[in-house]
Design a protein around this nucleic acid. Structure first.
Length: 576
RNA sequence: GCCGCCGUAGCUCAGCCGGGUAGAGCACCGGCCUUGUAAGCCGGGGGUCGCGGGUUCAAAUCCCGCCGGCGGCUCCA
């Protein structure tokens, strides 16, 4: 991630507004804000026209020309009174050659000249129902080297894009005939899913969750009880069958609640913990879909804990610990994660006291683990406070993955109870949690994190065996067989291609290990191991490699530990 | 859903502006080569140019609608 300078973005935003109002009379500037990924400048189009590409290029050039011809210093005037600008929350006015331009008040524009401006997109912005603005978003630099570095970074980001890699590595695809936002996993993508599911099953068992399985459609009456029918209907897939209405599940909770309700629960039974890899469908609006990161059908590693109020903190703490294990398992840098605690919104259900208790429990759980987080006041769901973990994708966008939500609403709506020690009936609290969030979204994040070069345990193909020539084909098959018998996902490449090409293909398919075998290896029952980064160990006994590789996979190692171990333990077999 | 851009072979893309009926590379198939470390050589098959309508003697190319994708906005795991 190349970091942009807010003060440079601010200056560019101000100058951009100035040249636009100078050169494009039908666009009136109304505001500009600065974020970590660029500036956003909003304009009113008084003619109803939209700026086209050539106009955008012209304006970009005009800013740089203005700067190179001496530039002009934006003069701070004060806070604005304009209603529209207030609506945009950008309340400082500046003046350039007598033209009023705007900027959010917190940022100070740079004194230094802007050397490069790149407008990345023109789009509509609708801060209110009846207001449509022209929004230019872009980046700016006061140093040409930084500009070039940013462009390079951006091109790199496209190569890491999970949509590009997903196709190149034959993991998954979307098909027009199938419908937008509906992912179809190819065999290799499904192998990754299976590994992730296996991982979460282990986490679930550590946390005491029992896995269940529930249907994909329910009678609408269930969605009416849960409240989804009223609150969520526009995102639900509903169908009338035999004169009855059914709804495809957008969430798994109602099914789990029915299980909770299947018998009388004692305070001793709690927490009751149910987990499911539940595939849900949410009919997101068309423009909101985005690769695997935003789809219409996805599988959550969902789980619901029915707890007493006094159990919330411990339960949340345990889940959080697993979430952080997960981050380190995938080597996701802390700077690429954000943790939020969202508190009571304006509209809410449940008592203030319960909210306060639950929120304090979440806080204490976070603090006990020494986790740094941001509080989003009033951003909680109407049914309870929550903790969310967001990850950053290759383009710098943030996506919510892990989530832990306290819920007072559903226990109420479904009239959930347990019998307390004094024989009285009490209402449990529900904790909704997802460790990965959605498997789809999480997969996208890790594909980008690793640029497709997944750690061995996650790689759909872990080893490819490449014979040097046809006469060692049999040995290649023998090696592959042995690896497969050891539970390793191995394939052989007996095609007619040259060795060089086979190696190149293996690298492009991001296969972690290439085993080259020729006459020498065949007679000695060894393999020559080629790992990532052209790291190589020659003539390693096959058994040694299998043993080390099984360890690497079992430990879910991030690095190519097997090869590194072999190289460090027996430098004698190194042979270049 | 809103604004803009885009949609040509399995993939990446050229051709579209100034209409005359489709091309390249990779992949695939066949042959030669029998390979010791990131693309060996030669040949071949493959496209109702996203779908539908309109303009025209003639549409991949111009116009309209729809479908799908992308970048933003809004919303979310």
């Amino acid at each position: 991630m190349v970091s942009l300078k807010p003060e440079v973005l601010a200056r560019a935003g101000l100058l951009l507004q100035y040249v636009v109002s100078r050169d494009v009379p039908w666009l009136r500037p109304v505001g500009c804000s600065v974020g970590e990924d660029g500036f956003k400048c909003d304009f009113i189009s008084t003619s109803g026209r939209w700026p086209d590409e050539s106009l955008v290029k012209k304006v970009e050039r005009a800013v740089v020309e203005l700067e190179s011809s001496g530039g002009v210093a934006p003069k701070y005037v004060g806070l604005v009174s304009d209603e529209l600008v207030r609506l945009l929350g950008r309340s400082a006015t500046y003046e350039i050659n007598g033209v009023e331009v705007f900027l959010e008040s917190e940022v100070k524009p740079s004194e230094r000249a802007v050397k490069a401006v790149l407008i990345r997109n023109v789009s509509a912005h609708n801060p209110a129902k009846d207001v449509s603005l022209v929004r230019l978003i872009g980046v700016a630099f006061d140093d040409l080297d930084e500009y070039r570095e940013w462009v390079e970074y951006y091109e790199e980001a496209i190569r890491r894009d999970h949509r590009v890699l997903g196709q190149k590595l034959d993991l998954f695809d979307f098909y027009e005939e199938a419908g937008p936002g509906l992912v179809i996993y190819h065999p290799k993508g499904q192998l990754i899913r299976e590994e992730l599911i296996k991982l979460v099953r282990e986490i679930n068992s550590r946390l005491g969750y029992s896995e269940v399985y529930t249907p994909h459609v329910y009678r609408s009456v269930l969605w009416k009880i849960s409240g989804h029918y009223d609150l969520y209907r526009d995102k639900m897939v509903l169908a009338d069958v035999d004169g009855e209405e059914y709804g495809v599940k957008p969430m798994n909770c109602p099914g789990h609640i029915l299980i909770y309700k299947s018998r009388t629960r004692s305070y001793r039974d709690l927490p009751v913990r149910l987990a499911e890899f539940g595939t849900v469908y949410r009919w997101e609006k068309r423009g909101e879909l985005f690769g695997l990161l935003r789809v219409r059908g996805f599988t959550q590693d969902d789980g619901h804990a029915f707890v007493r109020e006094d159990q919330v903190e411990l339960e949340v703490g345990n889940i959080l610990r697993e979430v952080f294990n997960l981050l380190s398992l995938f080597g996701i840098a802390r700077e690429n994660t954000r943790i939020y605690l969202s508190t009571k919104p304006e509209k809410y259900i449940g008592s203030d006291e319960a909210w306060d208790k639950a929120t304090q429990s979440l806080k204490r759980a976070l603090d006990k683990l020494g986790i740094q987080y941001e509080v989003k006041e009033g951003e909680g769901a109407f049914y309870g406070p929550k903790i969310d973990v967001h990850f950053r994708d290759s383009l710098g966008r943030w996506w919510q993955c892990s989530t832990i939500q306290v819920d007072f609403a559903l226990p109420e709506r479904f009239n959930l109870e347990y019998v307390d020690s004094d024989g009285s009936k009490k209402r449990p609290v529900m904790i909704h949690r997802a460790i990965l969030g959605s498997i789809e979204r999480f997969m996208a994040i890790i594909i980008e994190e690793f640029e497709g070069r997944l750690p061995t345990w996650l790689s759909p193909v872990q080893v490819i065996v490449v014979p040097v020539s046809k006469d060692v084909a049999e040995y290649a098959l023998e090696v592959t067989e042995k690896l497969k018998n050891a539970g390793i996902r191995a394939v052989e490449d007996l095609s007619d291609e040259t060795l060089q090409k086979k190696i190149k293909m293996a690298y492009e398919q991001a296969i972690p290990y290439v085993l080259v075998v020729g006459r020498k290896e065949a007679t000695q029952k060894t393999v020559t191991i080629r790992g990532r980064g052209n790291l190589q160990a020659s003539n390693v006994p096959l058994d040694t490699f299998v043993r080390e590789l099984i360890n690497e996979i079992r430990e879910r190692a991030l690095s190519q530990k097997a090869l590194i171990n072999i190289l460090s333990k027996s430098p004698a077999i190194q042979n270049s």
